[in-house]
Design a protein around this nucleic acid. Sequence first.
DNA 1: TAGATTGTTAATCGATTAACAATC
DNA 2: TAGATTGTTAATCGATTAACAATC
Lengths: 214, 214
Amino acid sequence: MRLPEKTVERLSVYRRLLRLGRYSDDACVYSHELAAMVSGTAAQVRRDLMAAGVGGHSKRGYRVGDLMRELGAVLDARDGTGVVLVGVGDLGRAILRFVKGCGARLRIVAALDSDPAKVGQLVHGYRCESVSDLEVLVGVGGVDVAIITTPAAAAQEVCDRLVRAGVRGVVNFSPTPIRVPDGVWVERVDLITVLEKVACLVRQAAAEAVEVGA
Amino acid sequence: MRLPEKTVERLSVYRRLLRLGRYSDDACVYSHELAAMVSGTAAQVRRDLMAAGVGGHSKRGYRVGDLMRELGAVLDARDGTGVVLVGVGDLGRAILRFVKGCGARLRIVAALDSDPAKVGQLVHGYRCESVSDLEVLVGVGGVDVAIITTPAAAAQEVCDRLVRAGVRGVVNFSPTPIRVPDGVWVERVDLITVLEKVACLVRQAAAEAVEVGA
DNA sequence: TAGATTGTTAATCGATTAACAATC
DNA sequence: TAGATTGTTAATCGATTAACAATC
């Protein structure tokens, strides 16, 4: 009973929307209501929730309390997930702030940087540590997931060290792809590619509209 | 001859890697070399390049000069793509820096914020303008794409105004989904979801390993 | 020639959508 | 009951991978 990638993504979004909605535990939502919130289909929502093991009621829909409990059981580790962030630039700071505010069960165990001037500073409540202590901090902190927000040049080496230290999941925000051994999950978030993609697809759509119009 | 989404994404990555590699125009690369760089397959690279209209040579591979020219023809607008960014926080600043440094043909036409204290400040070389001038700046700047880095509460309203002003593509970094009319392309980048997803999938993989081992 | 690579088709895989019986 | 919703199966869609003839 392994959940598909895309389903996990959507479960995370459903949960966040329900939190934002401040429903009572006894409130109920219909699959088509959740679908409307994410611009998806009701069938997909029902499928996702079934995969997560949440049952609904033929007439009343899904109970929010049940939803939150089951989504938590699927998405969260019992003691939260230990996370380390490497690279405390603008982007690193932005992510620290997001994680702090989102209510997810993610424990930032350390924020690391190679710049001695940054080490010791407080960033959104987290103390910036030296990247030379990476192995120790990952080891003692029970860290499973790392966030790489370093410049491209440092990304691969930092990643190699993280993996050797025991990290099993990596979110790579650096502008270059990184390689990892089997058994390590990498998710790449490429800001430039997202922008170029949207720009390109918008142009394609516009070009098509002209063709059709002609 | 509309390119698949995923192909466009990878074309953007190939180009960036080739730029980073500082090849001469006459240098050649094989599909399996590009594949290794992105941890993909050679067949997929060939497919992508075929879709982009780049031809290779049975023995020498693909000429970098040809690649760069054709990838540019597919990905770039002739005069660059006008972009506006709304929300000059940590994340907005990070993105402005990325765009500035990446060499993509993206023109930041304006960086907007609702905070009067920020208006007038220079951020990575861009002057921060007031969000109340959104319509004017989008209109005169030839803006096609918008980046939303506002808090969740402001995202939908800002998006509505952008779309009314003529924006056809949106990259939404705010922690909430936004709705747009048909004909507008939205790409959502959800930092929390990416983290929760990696955390969840890593745990699933670990649980499976235990099962198999048992 | 022999060997490696491209271009392209067919097979596979995964995810989404449509449809509908079962339920309340 | 009638009508709306869930749970689930079948059909569709899109993307990836495998395979191989054509080329150099």
